[in-house]
Amino acid sequence: MTGSPSVGFRVFRAVFLLACVAFFALPLVAMLDFSTKIPATGERTFADWQALVTNDSLRESIIVSVELAVLTVAGMVLLLVPTMIWVRLRVPRATRLVEFLCLLPLTIPALVIVVGIKNVMAWVNYYIGDTPLALTFPYIILVLPFSYRAIDSALSAIDVKTLSEAARSLGAGWPTVFVRIVLPNIVGGVLGAATITVALVLGEFTFGSLLNYQTMPVEIAAIYKVQARAAVAAALASIILIAVLLMLLSYVSRDRRTREGRATA
């Protein structure tokens, strides 16, 4: 533009952005403060952070949530990746339908699905037993929009059709096209989808609490009443883990973008 911004603008920018940083950082710092301080004496202690492993019910809930995350990623990849590739290759007229269905959970609140899913979950429990891992199924629905977007942008970056036609003209069958041609080219997108899936599952509260399963967030909320500091420590630990995962995701996707940019330049 016309030279560099004015001094007044720069001051405003600095003040405004610093205020934002304070607003967003303060509650996190407060959690750290709370979880490490004995109010009576003001002493610092990390004893309550140890509850993450020493508290049996908390540890178990963490294991449940991690298992759920792994299963949800596996289910999401198995369900979504072949479907999305197949739509691009063979049934392009289903593109709009699949996109609509994948983005639908953005429009239907999770709470609404919880209300309506009782019968379906009873049926699931009848087949696989009453285990918290049954949450895998609704969780796959929950992560559908975000996973779809990640994989879709990876697929858009390559010309699936031409690649597969090239491979098939060279004698490759459909399984080879899937596994050896398309998949290696969208690994970044699938990883991104997996990352956001893990982040969402680890923080999910609505389904877990209303369907009465002791997932990590539900357990953290429960022990807050008896061991507030441990609960806050666990909550902070979980958000740090989720933040690292999501930062990693944005780093990975940026890396992919810059590489594409260079290729087209």
Partner: peptide, 22 residues
């Protein structure tokens, strides 16, 4: 080729559409 979309459609039908319609 459309048949290959069945697993996806059935899954979404059971865990998203049925609850919403319910």
């Amino acid at each position: 080729p459309s048949l290959a979309l069945l697993p996806f459609l059935v899954f979404v039908g059971i865990f998203l559409i049925i609850p919403t319609v319910t």
